[in-house]
Amino acid sequence: MTNLVLVEHDNSAVKSATLHAVAAAQKIGGDIHLLVAGQNCRAVADEAAKIAGVSKVLLADDAAYASRLAENTAKLIVGLAPSYSHVLAATTAMGKNVMPRAAALLDVQQISDISGVESADTFVRTIYAGNAVATVQSADKVKVITVRPTAFEAAAATGGSAAIENVAAAGETGLAAFVGQELSKSERPELTSARIVISGGRGMQSGDNFHMLEKVADKLNAAVGASRAAVDAGFVPNDYQVGQTGKIVAPELYIAVGISGAIQHLAGMKDSKVIVAINKDEDAPIFQVADYGLVADLFQAVPELEQALSK
Protein backbone atom coordinates (compact mmCIF):
# COMPACT_ATOMS: atom_id res chain seq x y z
CA MET A 1 0.00 0.00 0.00
CA THR A 2 1.46 3.36 -1.02
CA ASN A 3 -0.04 6.83 -0.62
CA LEU A 4 0.64 9.72 -2.94
CA VAL A 5 0.10 13.16 -1.41
CA LEU A 6 -0.14 16.22 -3.63
CA VAL A 7 1.95 18.99 -2.09
CA GLU A 8 0.39 22.44 -1.72
CA HIS A 9 2.96 25.15 -2.40
CA ASP A 10 3.68 28.44 -4.15
CA ASN A 11 6.79 27.29 -6.05
CA SER A 12 8.97 28.41 -3.16
CA ALA A 13 7.69 26.80 0.05
CA VAL A 14 5.46 23.96 1.25
CA LYS A 15 2.11 25.17 2.59
CA SER A 16 1.28 23.82 6.03
CA ALA A 17 -1.98 22.20 4.85
CA THR A 18 0.23 19.54 3.23
CA LEU A 19 1.48 18.39 6.63
CA HIS A 20 -2.06 17.59 7.67
CA ALA A 21 -2.70 15.58 4.49
CA VAL A 22 0.51 13.64 5.20
CA ALA A 23 -0.82 12.96 8.71
CA ALA A 24 -3.97 11.44 7.21
CA ALA A 25 -1.79 9.28 4.95
CA GLN A 26 0.13 8.13 8.02
CA LYS A 27 -3.16 7.03 9.58
CA ILE A 28 -4.04 5.07 6.45
CA GLY A 29 -0.68 3.31 6.66
CA GLY A 30 1.85 2.14 4.11
CA ASP A 31 4.52 4.16 2.31
CA ILE A 32 4.06 7.85 1.65
CA HIS A 33 5.24 9.56 -1.51
CA LEU A 34 4.78 13.25 -2.19
CA LEU A 35 4.14 14.89 -5.54
CA VAL A 36 5.53 18.37 -6.09
CA ALA A 37 4.14 19.77 -9.34
CA GLY A 38 5.30 23.28 -10.12
CA GLN A 39 7.83 25.36 -11.98
CA ASN A 40 11.30 26.16 -10.65
CA CYS A 41 10.22 24.52 -7.44
CA ARG A 42 13.25 22.45 -6.47
CA ALA A 43 13.28 24.25 -3.11
CA VAL A 44 9.78 22.92 -2.44
CA ALA A 45 10.90 19.36 -3.16
CA ASP A 46 13.90 19.79 -0.85
CA GLU A 47 11.62 21.01 1.92
CA ALA A 48 9.07 18.24 1.25
CA ALA A 49 11.79 15.59 1.47
CA LYS A 50 12.34 16.54 5.13
CA ILE A 51 8.74 15.87 6.18
CA ALA A 52 8.64 13.01 8.66
CA GLY A 53 7.46 9.65 7.35
CA VAL A 54 7.89 10.41 3.65
CA SER A 55 9.93 7.91 1.66
CA LYS A 56 10.00 9.54 -1.77
CA VAL A 57 9.30 12.92 -3.37
CA LEU A 58 8.26 13.04 -7.01
CA LEU A 59 9.19 16.31 -8.65
CA ALA A 60 7.43 17.42 -11.84
CA ASP A 61 9.07 20.72 -12.68
CA ASP A 62 7.48 22.17 -15.78
CA ALA A 63 5.83 25.34 -17.05
CA ALA A 64 2.55 23.40 -17.28
CA TYR A 65 2.40 23.31 -13.47
CA ALA A 66 3.51 26.88 -12.74
CA SER A 67 0.14 27.79 -11.25
CA ARG A 68 -1.28 24.29 -10.69
CA LEU A 69 -4.03 24.64 -13.28
CA ALA A 70 -6.48 21.79 -12.77
CA GLU A 71 -6.40 20.48 -16.33
CA ASN A 72 -2.62 19.93 -16.42
CA THR A 73 -2.18 18.86 -12.81
CA ALA A 74 -5.00 16.31 -12.93
CA LYS A 75 -3.50 14.82 -16.08
CA LEU A 76 -0.18 14.36 -14.27
CA ILE A 77 -1.87 12.70 -11.30
CA VAL A 78 -3.87 10.35 -13.54
CA GLY A 79 -0.63 9.08 -15.08
CA LEU A 80 0.92 8.39 -11.69
CA ALA A 81 -2.14 7.09 -9.82
CA PRO A 82 -2.12 3.44 -10.99
CA SER A 83 1.00 2.80 -8.85
CA TYR A 84 -0.79 4.00 -5.72
CA SER A 85 -3.49 2.77 -3.37
CA HIS A 86 -4.44 6.27 -2.20
CA VAL A 87 -4.03 9.71 -3.71
CA LEU A 88 -4.56 12.56 -1.24
CA ALA A 89 -4.53 16.33 -1.09
CA ALA A 90 -5.55 18.82 1.56
CA THR A 91 -8.99 20.37 1.20
CA THR A 92 -7.72 23.71 -0.07
CA ALA A 93 -8.77 25.73 -3.11
CA MET A 94 -6.11 23.83 -5.08
CA GLY A 95 -7.03 20.38 -3.74
CA LYS A 96 -10.73 20.99 -4.31
CA ASN A 97 -10.06 22.15 -7.85
CA VAL A 98 -7.66 19.44 -8.99
CA MET A 99 -8.62 16.21 -7.21
CA PRO A 100 -12.19 15.65 -8.48
CA ARG A 101 -10.93 16.16 -12.03
CA ALA A 102 -8.32 13.46 -11.50
CA ALA A 103 -10.86 11.21 -9.78
CA ALA A 104 -13.32 11.40 -12.68
CA LEU A 105 -10.58 10.60 -15.19
CA LEU A 106 -9.68 7.56 -13.06
CA ASP A 107 -13.38 6.60 -12.80
CA VAL A 108 -13.19 6.93 -9.04
CA GLN A 109 -15.75 8.41 -6.66
CA GLN A 110 -13.68 10.84 -4.60
CA ILE A 111 -14.09 11.02 -0.83
CA SER A 112 -14.13 14.73 0.00
CA ASP A 113 -12.84 16.51 3.05
CA ILE A 114 -12.34 13.54 5.34
CA SER A 115 -12.06 14.21 9.07
CA GLY A 116 -11.19 10.67 10.12
CA VAL A 117 -9.61 7.44 8.90
CA GLU A 118 -11.28 4.22 10.12
CA SER A 119 -9.29 1.87 7.91
CA ALA A 120 -7.62 1.87 4.50
CA ASP A 121 -11.02 1.93 2.76
CA THR A 122 -13.31 3.54 5.35
CA PHE A 123 -13.37 7.21 6.16
CA VAL A 124 -15.33 9.73 8.21
CA ARG A 125 -16.61 13.01 6.77
CA THR A 126 -19.16 15.59 7.75
CA ILE A 127 -22.24 16.37 5.68
CA TYR A 128 -25.01 18.99 5.96
CA ALA A 129 -22.73 21.75 7.25
CA GLY A 130 -21.35 19.51 9.95
CA ASN A 131 -24.79 18.60 11.31
CA ALA A 132 -24.24 14.93 10.52
CA VAL A 133 -21.16 12.75 10.40
CA ALA A 134 -21.01 9.96 7.82
CA THR A 135 -18.76 6.92 7.73
CA VAL A 136 -18.24 5.82 4.13
CA GLN A 137 -16.49 2.89 2.52
CA SER A 138 -14.91 2.93 -0.93
CA ALA A 139 -14.42 -0.10 -3.16
CA ASP A 140 -12.58 1.88 -5.85
CA LYS A 141 -9.15 0.55 -6.75
CA VAL A 142 -7.45 3.87 -6.06
CA LYS A 143 -8.89 5.99 -3.27
CA VAL A 144 -8.92 9.67 -4.17
CA ILE A 145 -9.26 11.73 -1.02
CA THR A 146 -9.22 15.32 0.15
CA VAL A 147 -8.30 15.86 3.78
CA ARG A 148 -9.72 18.46 6.18
CA PRO A 149 -6.50 19.93 7.62
CA THR A 150 -7.99 20.89 10.99
CA ALA A 151 -9.02 17.28 11.65
CA PHE A 152 -5.48 15.85 11.59
CA GLU A 153 -2.53 16.91 13.72
CA ALA A 154 0.24 18.10 11.37
CA ALA A 155 3.03 15.68 10.51
CA ALA A 156 6.47 16.92 11.57
CA ALA A 157 7.97 19.22 8.95
CA THR A 158 11.46 17.89 9.63
CA GLY A 159 13.10 14.62 10.51
CA GLY A 160 12.69 12.86 7.18
CA SER A 161 15.22 12.43 4.40
CA ALA A 162 13.30 11.19 1.39
CA ALA A 163 14.84 10.71 -2.03
CA ILE A 164 13.78 13.17 -4.72
CA GLU A 165 12.93 11.65 -8.09
CA ASN A 166 12.19 13.67 -11.20
CA VAL A 167 9.08 12.65 -13.08
CA ALA A 168 8.27 13.58 -16.66
CA ALA A 169 5.64 16.24 -17.23
CA ALA A 170 2.38 14.91 -18.66
CA GLY A 171 1.99 17.73 -21.15
CA GLU A 172 0.18 21.04 -21.54
CA THR A 173 -3.53 20.57 -22.23
CA GLY A 174 -3.80 24.08 -23.63
CA LEU A 175 -7.25 24.44 -22.05
CA ALA A 176 -6.48 27.16 -19.54
CA ALA A 177 -3.94 29.85 -18.79
CA PHE A 178 -3.14 31.78 -15.65
CA VAL A 179 -3.80 35.53 -16.07
CA GLY A 180 -3.19 37.04 -12.64
CA GLN A 181 -4.03 37.11 -9.00
CA GLU A 182 -4.99 39.56 -6.29
CA LEU A 183 -3.92 38.10 -3.00
CA SER A 184 -4.75 39.70 0.32
CA LYS A 185 -1.54 40.90 1.89
CA SER A 186 -1.20 40.47 5.60
CA GLU A 187 1.55 40.20 8.16
CA ARG A 188 -0.79 38.23 10.38
CA PRO A 189 -0.85 34.42 10.53
CA GLU A 190 -2.82 32.49 7.92
CA LEU A 191 -6.46 32.03 8.85
CA THR A 192 -6.47 28.23 8.62
CA SER A 193 -3.32 27.69 10.68
CA ALA A 194 -3.48 30.55 13.19
CA ARG A 195 -3.53 29.66 16.91
CA ILE A 196 -6.07 32.41 17.55
CA VAL A 197 -8.72 33.75 15.18
CA ILE A 198 -10.92 36.80 15.68
CA SER A 199 -13.85 37.07 13.26
CA GLY A 200 -16.41 39.76 12.59
CA GLY A 201 -19.93 39.51 11.27
CA ARG A 202 -22.68 41.74 10.02
CA GLY A 203 -22.65 43.49 13.38
CA MET A 204 -19.35 45.13 12.43
CA GLN A 205 -21.37 47.43 10.15
CA SER A 206 -18.46 48.40 7.87
CA GLY A 207 -15.08 47.37 6.58
CA ASP A 208 -13.48 50.24 8.48
CA ASN A 209 -14.70 48.84 11.74
CA PHE A 210 -12.68 45.67 11.08
CA HIS A 211 -9.63 47.75 12.06
CA MET A 212 -10.84 47.35 15.63
CA LEU A 213 -10.52 43.59 15.25
CA GLU A 214 -7.13 43.93 13.58
CA LYS A 215 -5.83 45.83 16.60
CA VAL A 216 -6.92 43.01 18.88
CA ALA A 217 -5.50 40.48 16.43
CA ASP A 218 -2.12 42.18 16.54
CA LYS A 219 -2.09 41.97 20.34
CA LEU A 220 -2.78 38.22 20.19
CA ASN A 221 -0.86 37.33 17.02
CA ALA A 222 -4.22 36.23 15.65
CA ALA A 223 -5.70 35.94 12.16
CA VAL A 224 -8.80 37.90 11.20
CA GLY A 225 -11.81 36.11 9.73
CA ALA A 226 -15.39 36.95 8.89
CA SER A 227 -18.84 35.50 8.47
CA ARG A 228 -20.39 35.19 5.04
CA ALA A 229 -22.64 38.17 5.81
CA ALA A 230 -19.62 40.41 6.33
CA VAL A 231 -17.99 39.22 3.10
CA ASP A 232 -21.19 39.55 1.07
CA ALA A 233 -21.62 43.08 2.44
CA GLY A 234 -18.17 43.89 1.09
CA PHE A 235 -16.61 44.64 4.49
CA VAL A 236 -13.69 42.26 3.84
CA PRO A 237 -12.44 40.10 0.93
CA ASN A 238 -13.68 36.57 0.19
CA ASP A 239 -10.62 34.85 1.63
CA TYR A 240 -11.71 35.95 5.13
CA GLN A 241 -14.84 33.80 5.05
CA VAL A 242 -15.14 31.12 7.71
CA GLY A 243 -17.93 28.58 7.28
CA GLN A 244 -19.41 25.62 5.46
CA THR A 245 -18.48 26.95 2.06
CA GLY A 246 -15.54 29.11 3.11
CA LYS A 247 -12.64 28.12 5.30
CA ILE A 248 -12.76 25.58 8.08
CA VAL A 249 -10.76 26.67 11.11
CA ALA A 250 -10.10 25.05 14.48
CA PRO A 251 -7.80 27.34 16.45
CA GLU A 252 -7.07 27.23 20.16
CA LEU A 253 -9.17 30.35 20.56
CA TYR A 254 -11.91 31.68 18.28
CA ILE A 255 -13.43 35.06 19.07
CA ALA A 256 -16.70 35.75 17.23
CA VAL A 257 -17.64 39.41 17.23
CA GLY A 258 -21.04 40.58 16.00
CA ILE A 259 -21.70 37.14 14.50
CA SER A 260 -25.16 35.67 15.13
CA GLY A 261 -24.03 32.08 14.54
CA ALA A 262 -25.90 30.64 11.56
CA ILE A 263 -25.27 26.88 11.20
CA GLN A 264 -23.28 27.60 8.04
CA HIS A 265 -20.83 29.70 10.06
CA LEU A 266 -20.72 27.25 12.97
CA ALA A 267 -19.71 24.54 10.47
CA GLY A 268 -16.49 26.42 9.90
CA MET A 269 -15.43 27.03 13.49
CA LYS A 270 -17.19 24.80 16.00
CA ASP A 271 -14.17 22.52 16.40
CA SER A 272 -12.19 25.41 17.87
CA LYS A 273 -10.88 24.60 21.32
CA VAL A 274 -12.22 27.68 23.08
CA ILE A 275 -14.94 29.88 21.60
CA VAL A 276 -15.70 33.41 22.73
CA ALA A 277 -18.77 35.27 21.50
CA ILE A 278 -19.34 38.99 21.80
CA ASN A 279 -22.81 40.02 20.69
CA LYS A 280 -25.41 42.45 21.91
CA ASP A 281 -28.25 40.01 21.19
CA GLU A 282 -28.31 37.63 24.13
CA ASP A 283 -30.44 35.16 22.16
CA ALA A 284 -27.93 34.88 19.29
CA PRO A 285 -27.31 31.18 18.50
CA ILE A 286 -23.55 31.75 18.70
CA PHE A 287 -23.89 31.73 22.51
CA GLN A 288 -25.03 28.09 22.35
CA VAL A 289 -21.55 27.02 21.27
CA ALA A 290 -19.50 29.65 23.08
CA ASP A 291 -17.41 28.74 26.11
CA TYR A 292 -17.44 32.38 27.15
CA GLY A 293 -20.20 34.71 26.07
CA LEU A 294 -20.26 38.45 26.56
CA VAL A 295 -23.52 40.23 25.88
CA ALA A 296 -22.30 43.70 25.01
CA ASP A 297 -22.10 46.35 22.34
CA LEU A 298 -19.06 45.35 20.33
CA PHE A 299 -18.15 48.98 19.70
CA GLN A 300 -17.46 49.33 23.41
CA ALA A 301 -16.30 45.80 24.17
CA VAL A 302 -13.71 45.40 21.41
CA PRO A 303 -11.68 48.55 22.18
CA GLU A 304 -11.95 47.62 25.86
CA LEU A 305 -10.62 44.15 25.03
CA GLU A 306 -7.69 45.65 23.18
CA GLN A 307 -6.93 47.85 26.21
CA ALA A 308 -7.20 44.93 28.61
CA LEU A 309 -4.82 42.84 26.50
CA SER A 310 -2.21 45.60 26.69
CA LYS A 311 -2.07 45.26 30.44
Binding site: Q109, T126, A132, V133, T135, V136, A139, D291, Y292, L294
Partner: peptide, 19 residues
Amino acid sequence: RLKTLKVVEPPKRKAGVKV
Protein backbone atom coordinates in the same frame (compact mmCIF):
# COMPACT_ATOMS: atom_id res chain seq x y z
CA ARG B 1 -19.73 3.76 -5.45
CA LEU B 2 -19.37 4.82 -1.84
CA LYS B 3 -21.23 2.79 0.72
CA THR B 4 -22.52 4.77 3.68
CA LEU B 5 -21.93 2.61 6.74
CA LYS B 6 -23.51 4.96 9.25
CA VAL B 7 -24.55 8.52 9.86
CA VAL B 8 -24.43 9.94 13.37
CA GLU B 9 -24.91 13.27 15.12
CA PRO B 10 -21.75 15.28 15.65
CA PRO B 11 -20.49 15.62 19.22
CA LYS B 12 -22.43 18.43 20.88
CA ARG B 13 -20.62 21.46 22.21
CA LYS B 14 -22.11 22.48 25.47
CA ALA B 15 -22.79 26.12 26.04
CA GLY B 16 -20.37 27.70 28.45
CA VAL B 17 -20.83 30.65 30.74
CA LYS B 18 -21.79 34.26 30.23
CA VAL B 19 -19.23 36.70 31.55
